[in-house]
Amino acid sequence: MDKFGNFLKSAEDVANALGTSGSGQIDRGDGKIVTWTFKGQLMGFEWKYIGVCVDKSTGETTTAIKQSKGGAIEHSMRDLFQRLAARKAL
Rank of each mutant, 00 (worst) to 15 (best):
A15S: 15
G22L: 04
S21D: 15
D2W: 12
M43G: 13
K66R: 12
T20N: 12
Q67H: 03
F7A: 04
A11S: 12
T63W: 07
V14A: 14
G31C: 07
G51F: 03
K39C: 00
N6G: 11
R87Y: 06
A89V: 04
S10D: 14
W36I: 00
V54K: 15
S68P: 02
F81E: 01
I65F: 01
E74K: 14
G22Q: 05
D13T: 15
S76E: 05
W36K: 13
K3N: 14
K66F: 03
R83C: 06
G19R: 07
K88V: 04
L42S: 10
W47M: 12
S68H: 06
F38T: 06
E74T: 10
G44P: 13
G40I: 00
I73C: 04
Q82Y: 03
V52P: 01
G71T: 02
V52A: 00
I50F: 08
L8K: 15
D2N: 15
G22V: 09
T35Y: 01
G24N: 07
D27F: 06
G40W: 00
A86T: 02
Q67G: 04
K9W: 11
L90A: 01
D13C: 05
L84V: 05
V54R: 08
A89G: 04
L18S: 04
G31I: 03
I26R: 02
L8F: 14
S68Q: 07
E60G: 09
F4L: 14
I33E: 02
A86F: 00
F7E: 00
V54D: 00
Q41D: 12
G70H: 07
I50A: 06
Q82G: 00
A64V: 08
G5T: 15
G19N: 13
S57E: 07
E12I: 01
S23M: 13
F81A: 00
A17T: 11
A72I: 08
G31W: 02
M43T: 11
L80E: 01
K66N: 12
S57P: 03
W36Y: 15
L8W: 09
G40H: 09
Q67W: 07
Y49L: 09
S21L: 13
T62E: 10
G31M: 03
V54Y: 03
I65M: 11
L84A: 01
G51V: 10
T37V: 01
D55Q: 09
G59Q: 02
T58P: 07
K48H: 07
R28W: 08
I33V: 12
I73K: 07
T61N: 01
Q25A: 09
T61P: 00
T62L: 05
I33Y: 00
M1W: 07
M43Q: 15
T62M: 04
G19Q: 13
T35G: 01
E74N: 11
K39I: 06
R78I: 05
L42K: 14
C53R: 01
G71Q: 05
H75Y: 03
R78A: 08
A64Q: 05
G51Q: 06
F38G: 06
S21N: 14
C53L: 03
I33M: 08
F81Y: 03
Q41L: 12
R78F: 01
A17L: 11
K48E: 09
A72P: 08
L42T: 06
R78L: 04
W47S: 08
F45R: 14
M77R: 03
I50V: 11
L8R: 14
G71S: 04
R28C: 09
D2Y: 11
G29F: 09
G19V: 13
G5C: 07
F7L: 15
G40Q: 05
F81N: 02
L42D: 03
